[in-house]
Amino acid sequence: MSLLYTLAAAAGAPRHLNPVKLFMDADFVVQLVMAGLILSSVWVWMIILSFSLRSGAIRKRCDAYERAFWKTKDIDAFQAEWEGRDTPSARVAAAGLAEWRASARRDLDGTRQRLSLAMDGAIAQEGEHLSERLNFLATVGSVAPFVGLFGTVWGIMNSFFQIGQQQNSSLAVVAPGISEALFATAIGLFAAIPAVIAYNRFSHRVDQLEARLQRFADRLQASFSRDLEGQ
């Protein structure tokens, strides 16, 4: 950062806002606020990238699994083949099959209820597992603007303090400090806006996955019910 600051200073009076110079000239507290917001923004974009790649891969694996599931003749071999892959549909089916094998099947209604509970629990667990990192997006989206505002308020307070110290209220004295302070709010918004958009979008994807798994579980339970009625 010191090298960037030296280069910026050597260029003379900037004709446009220089983010590096604004950061380096800011008060230490404002610098801490900016640094925290920048790190949060980087982490937000890492979550956005990783979640996008992961959710796309999961959707493709679920498509392949469900297409093959209804065609297989040997369910045990098929489940063994998919074991270890990150496929929510396979884990929901495994929960239903485990309960099916454990049930005595003398009480048909009780068996149906236990099958439903087992697969519903697996669906809820899959949704929680996929969305566990989305809480950070929600936190940044709601908190980052206020953190940036705190940096702005602190910077403006420091600017007024400098006015009192120098006994000079000219724009040349006030403007730099206020610009540095407002830059903290800009960084806060830069971190918050993508986080809010990504959180809403990814929450919708999680809801879509849960709905998809629920349809798969309903179809599987209907298959189990037909087998129960045929016994």
Rank of each mutant, 00 (worst) to 15 (best):
F190H: 11
W82Q: 01
Q162K: 11
A95S: 11
S223D: 15
L149C: 11
Q162F: 04
E180R: 03
S179G: 13
W45Y: 12
K60Q: 13
R54I: 00
G36P: 07
L213K: 02
L189S: 11
F150Y: 14
V174H: 10
E66Q: 10
S52M: 06
R61Q: 10
G12F: 01
I178N: 06
S2T: 08
I187K: 00
N158E: 04
D120N: 12
R219V: 04
A8F: 01
H204N: 15
W70T: 03
Q165F: 03
V147E: 03
L171C: 10
Q166K: 12
T6A: 14
V30N: 06
I156N: 05
Q113Y: 12
R215E: 09
V33D: 01
S142C: 11
A13M: 05
Q165V: 13
Q79V: 02
A94G: 07
L189D: 04
S142N: 15
R15T: 13
G188H: 03
F51Y: 09
A138P: 03
L171R: 10
L189F: 12
Q214R: 09
G84C: 07
I75E: 07
E126D: 14
L22S: 08
G151K: 04
M24F: 09
D109R: 14
S2D: 09
Q208T: 13
R67L: 11
F23C: 04
Q221W: 02
